[in-house]
Structures are given as structure tokens and as C-alpha cells.
């Protein structure tokens, strides 16, 4: 390095590193705490970060195995945690796929087609999304209760209802994808039209392949959103077998007895699908897909 550096440069580097390490610790601390709680015998929220004694009792319960406690008694798993995890993954995958499908096609219409009320529709969608879902819980309940009396698999306590409810929240995703479509030069699709493509073929074979990174991001956001969502799921799902992990793990926290250890193990499990999906998605989130198509 031949570049001449100021004497204060070294200090600045050290200060920046110290600051970064501090924030890293701040971010990681809650996660490490949960890991620690899940590995600690008994159900205590407080305690040292490094457990004095390692016990897998909470993990055995979470994974549906059961264990023999200190007094020699067999403790059976109280809840079907793995079943909840499966429910969560199923609902998140399907709803994210539905959201992706609908918001991509909607975004294409808003970005490329000219029709009356285009701008108005976009703004209304966005404004309606601003209204928190929590405040409309009662309405959501009533709506699905009514739907259920005609279409049972979309009624209360069905996964269909939850997927449908999640799929409704796509205004933000439409905006995200439309913003990306807007950055792709229209000429490329016009060239496809001249080559004989219909609107749909231009969308499918030309625009979509270029939009893969943003589609992956939207899928990921929708997937994570569905995994961690609590209020709507807690209202629509009732039977223990049907719950998602986010709702189910709350059952470990009775009013009289907070089973922090079991809860912690379940919480870490719910992070698992998110991590896996993220790792899978990462390699599609590459930049430069649209490079070279037009003169920059």
C-alpha cells in the first residue's frame, strides 16, 4: 500500500471496529441467550449466558422424543412441536408462492400496461396496506367464519384460510417488484414484441428471467413474514394440531408456569426454515442480470 495515510487513520479504524463489534454483540446477545436457555436444565429465563450444566431435555421435548427427569419420571412431549413446524413451513411456502405469483403479474400490469385508474389503484393498494392487520382481526375472523360456511377448507381453523389471509398482503410486494420492472428498459420487451412475442410471452421469457433477484427477495420476505406472523394465525387457527409454530410455542407459556426452556427450543426451531430458505435463495440474488441488454 503506497497510499499515504493520516496518523489518525489507525485510530479511526480501531474505533470503527470497536463500534461494529459492540453492535454485533448487541444483536447476537438475545439469540445466544435463547440458545443458552434452551440448553439449560429447568425453565429459567434468567441466568448466565454460558450454562453451568448442559441438558437436552427441552430439545428432546421439542423434537417429540421425551426424557426421564431427575426424579426418574418419564416426561412425555406436551405439544406436537414438529407438527407445528411442518404447518409453518407448509403455510409459509404456499402463501409466499401465491404472493409471488399474484404480485409479479400485478406489478407487470402496473409497470407496463396502460389502463384507467392505474395510478389511483396503486396508491389505494398501498394505503390499504398501511392499515395494520391486527386492528382488523375481528373483521378477518368474521370474514373467514362466513366463508367457512360455504367453503369449509377456507373456514376458521383451516390452513387454507390462513394462506388466503396472508396472500392478501401483497401491496408492498407489488410496489417492490414494480419498482424493479421500472428499471428494466422497455425497449427489450418491445424487441420481443417485434420478434413476435405476445404480452405474456414477453413477460414470461424476457422480463421474468431478468427479474429473478427481486422475485427471490419478495419470496423470502413473504416466507419470513408468514413464519413469524402471530396475530392473524392466532385468531384463525384453534386446534392444537393445526397451529403454526409461532402460535403454538406460545402454549409453553402458561400464566402460572412459563416453560422458558421449552419455548426457547421451539423458537430456535422456527428460525430453521428461514435460515434454510435464505441460504437456498442467496445464490439467486445476484446483480448484473440486466447488464449488456441496452447501451448504459
Amino acid at each position: 500500500m503506497a497510499m499515504v495515510l493520516d496518523k489518525t487513520h489507525r485510530f479511526k479504524v480501531i474505533a470503527a471496529h470497536a463500534g461494529l463489534i459492540f453492535f454485533l454483540a448487541l444483536t447476537l446477545f438475545p439469540f445466544l441467550m435463547i440458545v443458552s436457555i434452551s440448553l439449560r436444565p429447568g425453565n429459567f429465563a434468567a441466568g448466565s449466558l454460558i450454562p453451568e450444566q448442559i441438558s437436552f431435555e427441552h430439545w428432546k421435548l421439542a423434537l417429540g422424543i421425551g426424557y426421564t427427569d431427575a426424579s426418574g419420571q418419564w416426561v412425555a412431549p406436551p405439544f406436537p412441536v414438529l407438527r407445528w413446524l411442518w404447518n409453518s413451513i407448509k403455510i409459509a411456502t404456499i402463501s409466499a408462492a401465491v404472493i409471488l405469483l399474484l404480485s409479479t403479474t400485478c406489478a407487470y400490469a402496473f409497470a407496463r400496461l396502460r389502463f384507467a385508474g392505474r395510478r389511483l389503484g396503486l396508491n389505494i393498494l398501498f394505503l390499504m396496506q398501511m392499515f395494520p392487520a391486527v386492528l382488523s382481526l375481528i373483521a378477518i375472523y368474521a370474514v373467514f367464519d362466513a366463508i367457512g360456511s360455504y367453503v369449509p377448507w377456507l373456514g376458521i381453523d383451516s390452513h387454507g384460510s390462513l394462506i388466503l389471509a396472508y396472500a392478501g398482503g401483497l401491496a408492498l410486494h407489488i410496489w417492490t417488484i414494480k419498482g424493479y420492472f421500472d428499471t428494466i428498459p422497455v425497449e427489450i420487451e418491445e424487441a420481443a414484441r417485434v420478434d413476435g412475442a405476445t404480452h405474456f410471452q414477453a413477460f414470461r421469457y424476457v422480463l421474468l428471467p431478468m427479474a429473478v433477484p427481486i422475485l427471490v427477495v419478495v419470496f423470502l420476505l413473504a416466507f419470513i413474514g408468514a413464519i413469524i406472523e402471530y396475530p392473524v394465525a392466532s385468531v384463525l387457527l384453534h386446534q392444537e394440531q393445526n397451529l403454526t409454530l409461532a402460535v403454538g410455542s406460545k402454549l409453553f407459556l402458561y400464566t402460572q408456569n412459563y416453560l422458558w426452556g421449552d419455548f426457547a427450543a421451539a423458537a430456535i426451531l422456527s428460525g430453521l426454515p428461514i435460515t434454510v430458505v435464505f441460504l437456498l435463495a442467496q445464490r439467486y440474488m445476484i446483480s448484473g442480470l440486466t447488464a449488456g441488454g441496452v447501451k448504459g
Binding site: P185, E187, I188, E190, A191, A192, V194, V206, P209, M210, L289, T290, A291, G292, G293, V294, K295
Partner: peptide, 13 residues
């Protein structure tokens, strides 16, 4: 007809 665009408009992928 076939058209050649100012910006080339190739399919980058």
C-alpha cells in the same frame, strides 16, 4: 417487419 433499436435492446440473459 423487423426492427433494430437505438439501445440494441438485446435480451441480456
Amino acid at each position: 417487419i423487423a426492427m433494430v433499436f437505438q439501445s440494441y435492446a438485446l435480451y441480456p440473459h
